[in-house]
């Protein structure tokens, strides 16, 4: 079993629909080959009352090597729009051990 010990888990709560776009950009721009998006509901500090107080959210989880953690954390923060009101929240924690998963390099083919 191949495992990594110096790994961080980044979890990000985003508005519904933005999770998969972020996974795509993480793959294309940061070389992340594995990330998960699940659905949920969330409420933030600004929402009061019970009607319409909940928002549909995407929960993105991604494990990253410790040396790239800060860079990817900042990337997700800005690209995911977390610097805007009602943009969501993200956090990072240490996890160990983590199974390593790397894809072989395959050239993308575009069908006409």
């Amino acid at each position: 079993m191949k495992t990594a010990t110096k790994t961080k888990l980044i979890t990000c709560i985003l508005p519904q629909g933005s999770g998969m776009d972020l996974v795509k950009r993480l793959s294309q721009e940061q070389g992340i080959s594995s990330a998960n998006v699940s659905a949920g509901r969330g409420r933030g500090s600004g929402q009061v009352g019970s009607i319409g107080a909940w928002d549909e959210v995407d929960m993105l989880t991604v494990t990253v090597p410790v040396e790239k953690a800060d860079e990817i954390f900042d990337f997700i923060f800005h690209v995911g729009g977390l610097d805007r009101p009602r943009g969501g929240i993200m956090f990072q924690q240490a996890v160990s051990p983590v199974t390593e998963f790397s894809l072989p390099h395959i050239e993308e083919t575009h069908s006409e």
């Binding site: 923060f77 977390l82 009101p85 943009g87 969501g88 929240i89 993200m90 956090f91 924690q93």
Partner: peptide, 12 residues
């Protein structure tokens, strides 16, 4: 309860 290293969100 899980301790977090850091978190980030929009801060007014």
């Amino acid at each position: 309860l899980t301790p977090l290293e850091k978190a980030a969100t929009y801060v007014p």
